Amino acid sequence: SDEELKKRIEELVRRGNKDEARKLAENANSDEARKWWEKLEQL
């Protein structure tokens, strides 16, 4: 689900694993996940 995906992306970003988070968001084929990633990346 998008919610689970967003949690995983956020967790990866928090751990400093941005590349992994980006790949996850891009491969998810989910606009919501991509937007979430872009938002987190700004922080």
Rank of each mutant, 00 (worst) to 15 (best):
E38V: 07
N29H: 10
W36R: 02
E20F: 01
K18R: 14
G16F: 01
K7I: 07
W37G: 02
K35C: 08
E4Q: 08
E41N: 14
E20A: 09
K39I: 13
N27W: 13
E11H: 06
S1V: 13
K7S: 10
E38F: 05
D31E: 13
N17Y: 14
L40C: 06
L12F: 04
R34Q: 08
D31F: 08
A25L: 14
E4N: 07
D19G: 05
N29V: 07
S30T: 11
R34N: 04
E41T: 15
L5E: 01
E32F: 10
E11W: 10
K23M: 10
E4M: 07
V13P: 00
E4G: 06
E11L: 05
E32S: 09
E10H: 06
G16A: 01
L5F: 06
N29D: 11
S1F: 15
N29F: 10
D31T: 08
R22S: 05
L5K: 00
K39W: 15
D31M: 09
A21E: 01
L43C: 11
Q42E: 09
K18H: 14
L5V: 05
A28F: 15
D2S: 10
N27Q: 14
D2M: 15
S30A: 04
N27D: 12
L5S: 01
L24N: 02
N27F: 12
L43R: 09
N29E: 11
W37R: 03
N27K: 12
S30C: 04
E20Q: 06
S30I: 04
K35M: 11
R15Y: 06
L24F: 03
D2G: 08
E4T: 08
K35W: 10
Q42A: 13
D19N: 05
N27L: 14
E3W: 12
D19L: 06
A28G: 05
E20K: 03
A25T: 04
S30V: 04
L5N: 00
L5Y: 04
A21R: 00
D19V: 05
E11G: 03
K39E: 13
W36Y: 13
R15E: 13
E4S: 09
E41W: 13
E41L: 15
R15T: 13
V13G: 00
A28T: 07
E41H: 10
N27H: 11
N17Q: 14
K35L: 13
I9F: 04
N27C: 11
A21K: 00
E11T: 04
A28E: 03
D2T: 13
R8N: 04
R14V: 08
L43M: 13
I9K: 00
D2E: 12
E3N: 09
L40F: 13
E26M: 13
A25Q: 02
R34D: 04
E32I: 10
A25I: 15
K39Y: 15
A33C: 02
I9E: 00
A28K: 02
A21S: 00
E26V: 06
L43Q: 12
W36P: 01
E41S: 14
E11V: 04
S30P: 03
A21G: 02
N17A: 12
N17E: 15
K7R: 14
I9H: 00
D31C: 08
K18S: 13
D31P: 11
W36E: 03
S1R: 11
R15M: 14
E3C: 13
I9C: 06
G16P: 00
E38Y: 08
D19T: 06
N17R: 13
G16W: 01
E20M: 05
A21D: 00
L5A: 02
L12C: 07
K18I: 15
R22T: 03
K23F: 08
A28C: 13
A33P: 04
Q42W: 07
E3T: 09
G16H: 02
R22G: 03
L24V: 07
N27S: 14
S1G: 12
V13L: 15
E3M: 08
D2K: 06
K18F: 15
I9Y: 01
R22Y: 09
V13M: 15
E10Q: 07
E38D: 08
L24K: 01
W37S: 03
R8V: 09
K35G: 09
K18P: 07
E41D: 11
N27Y: 10
A25N: 01
R22Q: 08
E10R: 06
G16S: 01
R22A: 09
R8F: 05
G16Y: 02
W36N: 01
K39C: 11
E4R: 05
D2L: 15
K6I: 14
V13H: 07
E11Q: 06
E26Y: 12
A21V: 01
E41Y: 11
D31H: 08
S30M: 06
K23V: 09
Q42H: 11
V13E: 01
D31V: 08
D31I: 11
N17S: 08
D19S: 06
E38A: 11
W37L: 15
K23Q: 12
R34V: 10
D2P: 08
L43N: 08
E26P: 00
E32R: 03
K23P: 01
K39L: 14
R15P: 01
E26F: 12
A33Q: 03
E10C: 13
E10V: 05
R34I: 13
A28S: 14
K7L: 10
K23A: 12
E41G: 07
L5C: 03
W37Q: 02
K39N: 11
R15D: 11
L12G: 00
L43G: 09
N17M: 15
E11K: 03
E10W: 13
K23L: 12
N29S: 09
A33S: 04
G16E: 02
I9D: 00
A21I: 03
W37Y: 15
W36A: 04
A21T: 00
L12N: 01
L43Y: 11
E3Q: 09
R14Q: 10
K18L: 15
R14G: 05
W37C: 04
R8W: 12
L12W: 02
E11P: 00
R8T: 09
D31A: 12
A28V: 09
E20D: 06
E38G: 05
E4W: 13
R34F: 13
N29P: 08
E20C: 04
L43A: 12
E41V: 15
K6F: 15
